[in-house]
């Protein structure tokens, strides 16, 4: 089953994500964001990227993690896949992904917002809903 789903939002994009662990939730959120943006990679050299984020809680880390990939997409013209989280604490994150040249990107995501953002623990793991400004 796809671990994310676009849900109704009048002006922006809203992405509901669920996963068995927080680490998987971060990975699925990044995958979902690129899927929503209609990202397609072109054949070309792969580039491995690692990132580290520091923030005051898990929600802020999630925003920073997603924002970091958007920034790299804009600056490098790459789209990302193969996301992984190596370390996740309540205030720090390290992880990475593989970047390839963007062949197609249907939509510009301006920002990842904090709007009603909360990572909830569920019986199956964790879930959250992220609103992206487009």
């Amino acid at each position: 089953m796809c671990p994310y789903r676009e849900i109704e939002h009048t002006a922006d994009w809203s992405l509901k994500v669920w996963a068995p662990s927080r680490e998987a939730l971060f990975v699925d959120a990044a995958q979902g964001m690129y899927a929503l943006a209609g990202a397609r990679a072109a054949p070309g050299d792969e580039e491995r990227h690692t990132i580290e984020c520091q923030a005051e809680d898990y929600e802020a880390l999630l925003v920073s993690w997603l924002q970091e990939w958007l920034y790299r997409t804009e600056m490098l013209g790459q789209v990302f896949e193969g996301f992984h989280i190596d370390r996740l604490t309540p205030t720090r994150l390290s992880g990475g992904a593989v970047g390839r040249p963007a062949r197609q990107l249907d939509k510009l995501i301006k920002a990842v917002t904090y709007h009603n953002l909360k990572i909830d623990a569920t019986a199956e793991g964790f879930e959250t809903t992220i609103v992206l400004d487009v």
Partner: peptide, 20 residues
């Protein structure tokens, strides 16, 4: 600034109905 204000709002004791 939305990011850096998250801590500032706490320091100034501002209750937020929505973090955005």
């Amino acid at each position: 600034y939305v990011q850096s204000f998250q801590g500032a709002a706490k320091r100034y004791g501002i209750h937020l109905p929505d973090r955005e």
